[in-house]
Deep mutational scan, measured.
Amino acid sequence: DYFTVDMEKGAKGFGFSIRGGREYKMDLYVLRLAEDGPAIRNGRMRVGDQIIEINGESTRDMTHARAIELIKSGGRRVRLLLKR
């Protein structure tokens, strides 16, 4: 199942961390959800969800650093296409 999650940044960021990336020879996944962060309050994202797109850009062969950069580059908002 594919689904989109739109979030607005909180005081401590978006409230999730990721693992994976090209340099680890793996796809990008949601690693952790911060307690009471925007990701957990949104209610749609879960640990283990695969991140397919960040702000419309495919994560295929994307490095971990580039993924972080893209998440931050959207300013106060981020849109993720996830797969569960």
Rank of each mutant, 00 (worst) to 15 (best):
D1H: 04
D1L: 15
Y2D: 05
Y2M: 05
Y2R: 08
F3N: 06
F3M: 14
F3P: 02
F3R: 11
F3T: 05
T4C: 05
T4Y: 06
V5N: 02
D6K: 11
D6V: 11
D6C: 15
D6N: 07
M7Y: 04
M7K: 03
E8S: 14
E8W: 09
E8Y: 03
E8N: 06
K9E: 15
K9R: 06
K9G: 10
G10K: 15
G10R: 05
G10Q: 09
G10A: 13
G10C: 06
K12Q: 12
G13D: 13
F14P: 11
F14A: 06
F14T: 06
F14Q: 02
F14K: 02
G15I: 00
G15E: 03
G15P: 05
G15F: 00
G15S: 02
F16G: 00
S17P: 01
I18G: 01
I18P: 01
I18C: 05
R19S: 15
R19Q: 04
R19C: 03
R19V: 05
R19E: 15
R19Y: 09
R19W: 04
R19G: 14
G20A: 02
G21C: 02
R22P: 04
R22C: 04
R22I: 05
E23T: 04
Y24C: 11
Y24D: 15
K25P: 05
K25M: 07
K25H: 09
M26V: 08
M26T: 12
M26F: 03
D27F: 05
D27Q: 13
D27S: 10
D27N: 10
D27A: 11
L28R: 01
L28A: 01
Y29K: 14
Y29G: 06
Y29R: 12
Y29L: 10
R32Y: 14
R32L: 11
R32W: 09
A34E: 14
A34S: 14
A34I: 10
A34R: 13
E35Y: 12
E35F: 08
D36L: 05
D36W: 05
D36K: 12
G37L: 09
G37D: 08
G37M: 11
P38F: 05
P38W: 05
A39M: 06
I40C: 09
I40D: 14
I40R: 12
R41A: 12
R41S: 11
N42M: 10
N42L: 11
G43T: 08
G43W: 03
G43Q: 09
R44A: 12
R44M: 15
R44Q: 15
M45Y: 00
M45W: 01
M45E: 02
M45F: 03
M45R: 01
R46S: 13
R46Y: 07
V47L: 07
G48C: 04
G48S: 05
G48R: 04
D49R: 01
Q50V: 09
Q50C: 13
I51M: 06
I51D: 00
I52L: 10
I52F: 10
I52A: 11
I52N: 05
E53T: 09
E53S: 10
E53M: 07
I54G: 00
I54E: 00
I54M: 03
I54S: 00
N55F: 03
N55R: 03
N55H: 04
G56E: 10
G56F: 04
E57I: 13
S58Y: 07
S58W: 05
T59I: 02
T59R: 00
T59A: 12
R60Q: 11
R60W: 07
R60V: 14
D61N: 08
D61A: 08
D61C: 07
M62Q: 05
M62D: 00
M62S: 06
T63W: 04
T63K: 11
T63Y: 15
H64R: 12
H64P: 03
H64L: 09
H64F: 11
A65N: 10
A65W: 07
A65M: 08
R66I: 06
R66W: 06
R66L: 06
A67P: 00
A67H: 00
I68V: 11
I68G: 11
I68D: 11
I68M: 11
E69W: 07
E69H: 07
L70F: 09
L70Q: 15
I71T: 06
I71R: 01
K72D: 12
K72W: 07
K72Q: 12
S73I: 08
S73T: 12
S73M: 12
G74S: 14
G74Y: 05
G74E: 08
G74P: 07
G74L: 04
G75A: 09
G75L: 04
G75P: 11
G75C: 09
R76C: 09
R76H: 13
R77S: 14
R77A: 08
R77K: 12
R77F: 12
V78L: 11
V78I: 08
V78C: 08
V78N: 03
V78S: 04
R79C: 11
R79I: 10
R79D: 07
L80H: 01
L80Y: 01
L80C: 04
L80M: 09
L80D: 00
L81C: 12
L81I: 05
L81S: 13
L81E: 15
L81Q: 15
L82S: 01
R84N: 15
R84Q: 14
